[in-house]
Amino acid sequence: MSDLLINVHESVDISGDCYFVNGNYEYYHYLCDGFDDRGWGCGYRTLQTICSWMKRNYQEDQKVPSIREIQEILVQLEDKPKSFGGSRQWIGSFEVCLVIDKLYDVPCKIIHVNKGDELQSVIDSLVSHFVHFGSPVMMGGDVDCSSKGIMGVNVCGSDASLLVVDPHYVGKEQTREFLHNKGWVKWQSLKDFLSSSFYNLCLPQVRAKSLQK
């Protein structure tokens, strides 16, 4: 069994209307398995976090793939050249979509936002996703190229925030409170995303066990 922290978003401050991921997941981050991916592995780690949710809530017999296994899948799908295997090239939301479809036969919805100050336009879609599917969301951008997991949405009047689970943390496993205090897990207001960056969001179209009829 993994010794990674579970559901690191729990116990965050709540105000207004909040909608969260439904079901358990593990927090994957830089160096969490001893493999040094600092500076380029954030997309892989967020994908692994989503895969851990899949394992716990959808397909128990499918293990969470390693970074190298993720690269091999993308090469097999001919999305990447053979030289991609063993490289330090990053992946984004589109590659995450391909791997999830390959491993779990689950389609993903990709939402493209032209620039950060237009993120308000996708809040209703994210709320609907967490209500009807409950799976974690992957978010990446071009200028703000660091990938991150989105585990919830907060709507308070005309303001909205996304619950970010950041894979860039390096260190031994700590408590949820430590991660919250250091900002590795946080509510991030839409105005704090870069207006100059586009963003892609990957929404796995699979329902958590608790939402299945």
Rank of each mutant, 00 (worst) to 15 (best):
residue 79 D to A: 03
residue 69 E to Q: 15
residue 111 I to T: 12
residue 93 S to R: 11
residue 102 K to W: 02
residue 213 K to W: 10
residue 202 C to N: 14
residue 208 A to N: 12
residue 119 L to P: 00
residue 133 F to W: 03
residue 93 S to G: 14
residue 139 M to K: 06
residue 62 Q to K: 13
residue 2 S to E: 15
residue 144 D to F: 01
residue 74 L to P: 10
residue 147 S to V: 07
residue 5 L to W: 03
residue 40 W to D: 07
residue 125 S to M: 00
residue 108 C to V: 12
residue 29 H to L: 04
residue 21 V to Y: 02
residue 192 D to P: 01
residue 100 I to Y: 05
residue 155 V to S: 08
residue 10 E to W: 12
residue 145 C to S: 07
residue 133 F to K: 03
residue 97 C to E: 14
residue 23 G to H: 05
residue 140 G to E: 01
residue 199 Y to P: 04
residue 87 S to N: 06
residue 138 M to S: 06
residue 24 N to W: 00
residue 50 I to Q: 05
residue 101 D to P: 00
residue 75 V to D: 06
residue 16 G to T: 03
residue 208 A to T: 11
residue 38 R to T: 14
residue 126 L to A: 04
residue 210 S to F: 09
residue 149 G to D: 08
residue 159 D to Y: 03
residue 175 T to R: 13
residue 55 K to G: 12
residue 120 Q to M: 09
residue 82 K to V: 11
residue 149 G to C: 14
residue 134 G to K: 03
residue 146 S to H: 04
residue 213 K to S: 15
residue 25 Y to M: 07
residue 189 S to R: 07
residue 13 D to L: 07
residue 158 S to P: 13
residue 66 S to R: 11
residue 163 L to S: 09
residue 138 M to A: 08
residue 88 R to V: 12
residue 194 L to N: 15
residue 105 D to T: 13
residue 152 G to A: 06
residue 93 S to K: 08
residue 57 N to W: 11
residue 204 P to T: 08
residue 213 K to G: 14
residue 141 G to Q: 00
residue 195 S to E: 14
residue 71 Q to F: 06
residue 3 D to H: 15
residue 85 G to E: 13
residue 153 V to E: 06
residue 116 G to K: 08
residue 202 C to I: 05
residue 140 G to P: 01
residue 204 P to D: 12
residue 40 W to F: 14
residue 60 E to N: 11
residue 81 P to K: 04
residue 156 C to W: 00
residue 193 F to K: 03
residue 119 L to E: 07
residue 66 S to F: 08
residue 36 D to R: 00
residue 186 K to E: 09
residue 64 V to Y: 09
residue 118 E to A: 05
residue 25 Y to H: 13
residue 135 S to F: 03
residue 63 K to S: 14
residue 52 S to Q: 08
residue 37 D to M: 08
residue 28 Y to N: 04
residue 76 Q to T: 15
residue 88 R to H: 15
residue 124 D to K: 00
residue 65 P to E: 04
residue 33 D to W: 07
residue 86 G to W: 11
residue 18 C to A: 10
residue 45 R to P: 02
residue 114 N to V: 02
residue 140 G to D: 06
residue 168 H to M: 09
residue 41 G to H: 08
residue 202 C to S: 15
residue 76 Q to F: 10
residue 116 G to L: 05
residue 58 Y to H: 15
residue 209 K to V: 14
residue 42 C to S: 10
residue 46 T to N: 10
residue 63 K to Y: 09
residue 203 L to I: 13
residue 147 S to Q: 04
residue 108 C to F: 11
residue 126 L to Y: 04
residue 76 Q to K: 14
residue 138 M to K: 00
residue 171 G to C: 07
residue 78 E to S: 14
residue 51 C to M: 06
residue 105 D to P: 04
residue 36 D to F: 02
residue 89 Q to T: 15
residue 194 L to V: 03
residue 29 H to Q: 09
residue 16 G to A: 03
residue 67 I to M: 06
residue 179 L to K: 10
residue 24 N to G: 01
residue 185 V to L: 11
residue 170 V to E: 14
residue 211 L to S: 12
residue 92 G to C: 05
residue 102 K to S: 02
residue 91 I to T: 11
residue 133 F to I: 02
residue 188 Q to F: 02
residue 78 E to P: 01
residue 186 K to Y: 14
residue 162 L to M: 07
residue 17 D to V: 02
residue 110 I to P: 05
residue 26 E to F: 01
residue 125 S to C: 09
residue 10 E to G: 03
